[in-house]
Amino acid sequence: MTTTSHNNPSVSSLDTASHEADNILEVRGVHAYYGSTCALRSIDLDVKANQVYAFIGPSGCGKSTFLRCFNRMNDFITDFKIEGSIKYRNTNIYHTDVDPVLVRRHIGMVFQKPNPLPTSIYNNVAWGPKINGFKVDFDELVETSLKKAALWDQVKERLTDNGYHLSGGQQQRLCIARAIAMNPDVILMDEPCSALDPISARKIEELIVDLKKDYSILIVTHNMQQAARLSHHTVFMLKGEIIEHGPTHNLFATPQQSLTKEYITGKFG
C-alpha cells in the first residue's frame, strides 16, 4: 500500500493561497515509539510557511503524537523514542546540539484543554517573553497579544485577576495570546476547540482564521468541517501513518485513497 499519494510538491501550486512559500518544516522518515509500541511510522511531510495544516484521523492514530514532535513536548514522556529528522528552517530540531527550550520558543503550542498558568492574566502573557529575555515594553506586548486573541476588551479592567477566573473559551484565548506573545513562527494546536462549547469554539475558530495571515498553523482536529473551513492542507492519518495529504479542497472533494474517502464520509472513525 502506498502511504502517501500527494507527495509531489507541484500539487501545492494548485492552492491559490500559496505563492511559492518555502518549506518551514520538513519531516523525513520519522518513526516514533512509546516503549515498544510504534506510534508513528515512516512519516514524510513538508510544511510551507504561512499555511494552515489540519491533521485528521480517528483517535489513537498518532496525530497528537506527531504534533508534539514539532516542539519536542514528547521529550518528557519516559520511554518515548523518535527516529528520523524534523527540520525547522533547515536545522534538525532533534540534533544533539539543539536545545529543545529554543525550539519551543519559536514553535508555540495551544493545548486541548485550556491551561492558563496559575497566575494573573497579565503574567500569563508576559511571562514567556520575560524569561526568554525579550527587551520590549511588556505592557504594550500584553495589550497587543490580548487584542490579537480578541480578549483585550473583556479583560483590560482586570489584568491582575487569576487566569483561572476566566470562562473556558476566554481561558483558551488567553492561551493563544500567551503563545503569540512569544512571536512564534509556527503555532501547534492540539484540538483547541474540543473542550469548549460551540459558541466559544466558533470564536476560537474565527481567531484562527485571523491568525493564519501571520503564522504557520498546524492543527489537530476531530471536526472535519473545521478542517475544511480552516486549512489549506489536510493530512489524513491512520494507525501512525499518513494515508493521504494534499490541498484541503482536493482531499475532501476527490480523495485518492479509499480509506480517506471512507473516513471523511463517516464510514468509520
Binding site: L102, R104, R105, M109, F111, W127, G128, M182
Partner: peptide
C-alpha cells in the same frame, strides 16, 4: 500539581 501547568510553561520555552 496538574501536568498541564508544567506543559504550559515548558511550551513557552521555559527551562
Amino acid at each position: 500539581v496538574p501536568q498541564t501547568v508544567r506543559q504550559a510553561a515548558m511550551a513557552l520555552g521555559a527551562t
